[in-house]
């Protein structure tokens, strides 16, 4: 299960809406081994594409180094789908390379509603998981 603060969910959705119709992407860092990310990091989509995303390699290097220095890892890796549902595509599965990450997918295909879902992608296998949205400081689920 992914436990995530409402304020961070709102930031992810705002980023996805702002970049629509291109795909938006980023990470939410958190302590190593945690399922509750704490630090929102918006990343550039180097592809600037409505059908593909890729982190800029130098930005990724800086952000990964920063996480390393803070004993963090990418607890969430998020990106948006702008014309299809919030479910990992074949491309998403073939490039998934962080076995510990929660892969968050956001769909902005509907103007008035944003789908927000989370998955584990390990060895080519997709497992959807529950998302518990909590208020700041709260330790338990309110959803």
């Amino acid at each position: 299960m992914l436990m995530i603060e409402r304020a961070i969910v709102d930031q992810i959705i705002a980023h996805a809406r702002a970049d629509h119709p291109d795909e938006a992407c980023g990470v939410v860092a958190g302590p190593i081994g945690s399922d509750r990310p704490t630090r929102f990091v918006r990343m550039a989509n180097a592809e600037r594409s409505p059908t593909f995303y890729r982190f800029d390699s130098m930005e990724q290097f800086q952000v990964w180094k920063e996480m390393d220095d803070r004993d963090e890892e990418p607890v969430v890796i998020y990106h948006s789908h702008t014309a299809t549902e919030a479910y990992p595509s074949r491309t998403d599965v073939s490039y998934a390379s962080e076995p510990n990450a929660h892969y968050v997918l956001v769909s902005t295909r509907e103007a008035d509603e944003t789908e927000f879902r989370s998955y584990r992608i390990v060895d080519g296998e997709i497992t959807e998981e529950e998302v518990s949205i909590v208020e700041a400081g709260e330790s338990d689920s309110v959803n």
Binding site: Y53, R54, W64, I77
Partner: peptide, 10 residues
């Protein structure tokens, strides 16, 4: 030398 898998998808 640092190796990082690209973070990418569709």
């Amino acid at each position: 030398v640092t190796v990082l898998p690209a973070v990418a998808g569709g």
